[in-house]
């Protein structure tokens, strides 16, 4: 998805994990992926540079959908979609 398309998304939940260190942001995302119903868009805000690379890798591994990332000033907005139960 393009940045413009990502900005139009209405996430079911936004997790602000700024202030936690690797693998904190990923773990916060996972909690939400578990809890939200299938079809939900989840936004993760991370201040950890690794997350922008780590999260897509994890989503791919567990077969959930990575929608994209918007880089901010010292943080990253990462969008994921829950496509199956886990």
């Amino acid at each position: 998805m393009t940045e413009e398309e990502l900005k139009q998304l209405k996430p079911a939940v936004t997790v602000d994990a700024r202030g936690t260190y690797c693998p904190g942001p990923l773990m916060e995302l996972i909690k939400e992926v578990r809890q939200q119903p299938v079809g939900s868009v989840i936004e993760l805000i991370s201040g950890d540079a690794g997350s922008a690379k780590d999260v897509p890798e994890w989503l791919n591994k567990v077969k959930q959908e990575f929608l994209g990332v918007i880089p901010g000033d010292g943080f990253w907005r990462i969008f994921a979609k829950k496509v199956k139960d886990m």
């Binding site: 690797c22 693998p23 990923l26 773990m27 996972i30 780590d54 994890w58 591994k61 567990v62």
Partner: peptide, 11 residues
Amino acid sequence: SMIASVAAVSG
């Protein structure tokens, strides 16, 4: 603990 966490949540 970091490696274990990420592995555990990846199945």
